[in-house]
Amino acid sequence: MRLDIRWPIGLMFSVMGALLAVYGGVTLGKPGTAPSGIPVNLYWGLVMLAFGLAMLAGARGKKEP
């Protein structure tokens, strides 16, 4: 297929990750946002954003793994 699948995956995870990270950052310290004591939205959002950006970088590099 001529569409590199890493584009949609990279875009989706970047958008979702950014959304979660920003939400996690804004609600930092509010009650109920960290049931386990860790601001998971912020951290996991950043991890997803990093994954998304890595996929996009791979797609730009054009080399299929």
């Binding site: 109920g32 946002t33 939205n41 959002g45």
Partner: peptide
């Protein structure tokens, strides 16, 4: 039990 709003959506 473990996911707050946001991660629960995920």
């Amino acid at each position: 039990h473990f996911f707050p709003a946001g991660l629960l959506g995920l």
